[in-house]
Nucleic acid binder design. Sequence first.
RNA 1: GGGCCCGUGGUGUAGUUGGUUAACAUACCGGCCUGUCAAGCCGGAGAUCGCGGGUUCAAGUCCCGUCGGGCCCGCCA
Length: 589
Amino acid sequence: MLKTHACGELRLEHAGQEVTLAGWVHRRRDHGALIFIDLRDREGIVQVVVDAENAPEAHAVADRARAEYVLQVHGRVRARPEGFRNPNLPTGDVEVVAHKVTILNPSKTPPFYIYDDTPVDESLRLKYRYLDLRRQRMQRNLILRHHVVNEIRQYLNAHKFLEIETPLLIKSTPEGARDFVVPSRLHPGKFYALPQSPQQLKQLLMVAGFERYYQIARCLRDEDLRADRQPEFTQLDLEMSFVEQEDILNIIEGLYIHLVEKLLPHKRIKFRPFPRLTYEEAMSRYGSDKPDLRFGMELVDLTDVVAESKFRVFAQTVSQGGQVKGILVPGAANYSRKELEQLESHVKPYGAKGLLWMAFREEGIRSPAAKHLTPGEVQAIRERVQAQTGDLLLIVADQPDVVAAALGNLRLVMGDRLGLRDPNELAFAWVVEFPLLEWDEEEARWVAVHHPFTSPIPEDWALADTDPGKMRAQAYDSVLNGWEVGGGSIRIHRSEEQAKMFELLGITQEQAQAQFGHILEAFQYGAPPHGGIALGIDRLVAIFADETSIREVMAFPKTTSAQDLMLGAPSPISEEQLRELHLAIVLDE
RNA sequence: GGGCCCGUGGUGUAGUUGGUUAACAUACCGGCCUGUCAAGCCGGAGAUCGCGGGUUCAAGUCCCGUCGGGCCCGCCA
């Protein structure tokens, strides 16, 4: 080894020891005959002192060193004199007096600062990702990620799970996200698909009798990107046999608690046990199937209160089967007209035609709707939302899905604005009883809300022929601070039920055979009852690391246009490669 | 497919209603300096304002297009 100690590990107890260090020049302070170098490695930073009088050769080398040079330093650890200690540095009680300094490798001046985390244009960070990763923020995040994955393995191994790998080159299926596809050289005109998740394979592992499986699995989906969505991402994928929904939720709840207790002592779990909301409840109370439960400000239904109102906005909405709902923002009654108008921009993208407000001020109630409402209606609204003087009511009147999306989003914006979303609070929750199916207007057929292997709640099979939209799934989402961090279900394990499901989805027997024949057949050989879940590791770690984008917890993420700015991917391939793969490029006009 | 925001020395920013040599901090280079830890002091070099076109006597500033980055809608079983 080129080093005997890590820079960051040196403490008073090492005083007097001869050490060899190796690392990067973090900062350098040149006093002429005396040079201080903050030497950095993975474990941290320690101050190296090079003195021209006692170590002239070392001093000459240190004089040439610049930021990010790679140095090896031989020296003696010394307790810093009283008054020269640095309380801001874990190693600040000591320093290393160098007697020999070697430049292992020089460095060009980096394109941005390594030594602090001040913001830098993200495209530049991504182009020089290997330098960005040297910075404290990314080091901290990727180290945390390692520990999270490690603790997941520890926990699941202790609970008798087996880690089993599944292939990346699999078969394209029509349901779900757009597949990434890999051309086959040996089979002209045929393609593999990269997995959107190992869903079918893990179910087949259950048929195979492994009973408890997990995998830290890479998943790939060719869809547009977001702060919380990358074309490739990592899931903790897990499946269990002979279980019911309750068993899965309990295992995962235990896993989350394990992770937080082991790794996040500064964070608090808000609710234990985790609350469970039905999908319907989540949508009506929070306008979201992934509610942030760190704060209240719930949606309040005013539809019945204003049903008889002469106010056109309300009357029209109600007569068209719409809803009138609001959120009460405490202490916001003094918002200016301009501020209130700006809030509209948070509901418009979701299709809301406008945002009504009602401010309960000292001097009375202010609202653009006031002159259209009777005093009795205003009073009834006030009572329904239990407004105090100083509160602001924000109202959306529209179709239920628009009201939910608009107010659900506005609630988060107001929660942020009032500082109600404490990053040190973890509000884990379960959302259960998702609908099984949802009507797709474009395709004019029912599609699976979760996926086509999800089992309905048994008694809801009765609705299959009469009202499939009402069927509830044995599906559950894991929700944390307003993010969906996981989802799973109890699966169908009987081939006749699976066939029935395909029928509901408008998939013919021939199609089902062609696309899912392997799983239908497998289910005829004693498939055990089973179910599972997948957790988004990137999202989970992002929340744990107080980041708002999963790019900050991935080593080499892609831009929102799905490019890798460091590698320059995607890129063209050679004529030769195309020929081998039997491919021809046809560009759009 | 659509909406919004951003692009000025290496980096981060400023740049009024369009008006002379584009400012500041930091980094970089040189000099001085033995106790700094955001070291300090002195000096220097460095941007034609993402790119293209247009309006104008005059464009970093206004308009159109385009490229790149970000946020969102659609999409994401």
